[in-house]
Amino acid sequence: MGDQFNDRSYFDKALEQLDRDIVWNQERKSKIQSKVMLTIDREKNKSRLFNSFKYMSSIGVMIALLLFGYNFLSDSMIYNNGDGTANTPGNQTNNSLITGEADNHEEKNENKNENKEIPKLNKSQVTEEELLKELDLRLPAHIPSEASNSPQFIKLVHPDGNVTAEVKYVETKELFFNYVQEEINEDTETVTEKIKNVMYKDEKLEEIEINGFPSYLLLEGDTSSYYSSLHIVIDNHFFTITTHGIGKDEIIKIADSIDFTGL
């Protein structure tokens, strides 16, 4: 039994050699090291700032509570001295609501801070109008309702001048929907050949037609892929819909809603 999984092979030495034969430039290594250290310093500063902010907020909340308590007690004393009506449950509710508001405020500030930690700046991010100037952009008319909020438009210009438009509709753990339209220099035949034999040579692709154009669908779960991908090939244009958490029918409905007329 011990020998059944004997994993010695005559590649062993060659594989060890492969590790030695991949050489990473030491200057680049140092550059990445500096970047790591810089990021760590930034993280440290952020956490310091965040802690001081929390400290200051706590002091602020404390002062607000003290002031409120003082006013509240003064009012109670006036009431007690006047018509004798003491604290009402309403007053108590208000009190707790105010405290709650302060907590919520603090929570919101914390969230703001968390959001700040992930700056999502993309230099190639553009508006839809800017993209339209660069490319005959064809967007799907049908978008799943959960993904219909303000998409991000990204423009990529290739060295040969071809433009790729990437539209990020939604990117959460449960739901992902990304759309790419690419200008290409190859004909439909070459492209379909590459899809089948290069891009997905080991995967089970479903060949379908979208508005009369050859299309290839790989569904999440069918293979080890986490995402579903639908590629549509038109001469000089290549479309890809990538999703997670969206069913096959819906993916096809999205694709069917793209108007390819005149491309």
Partner: peptide
């Protein structure tokens, strides 16, 4: 999917 696309294109 994007990487494949980029490599391919």
């Amino acid at each position: 999917p994007i990487k494949l696309l980029k490599d391919f294109i």
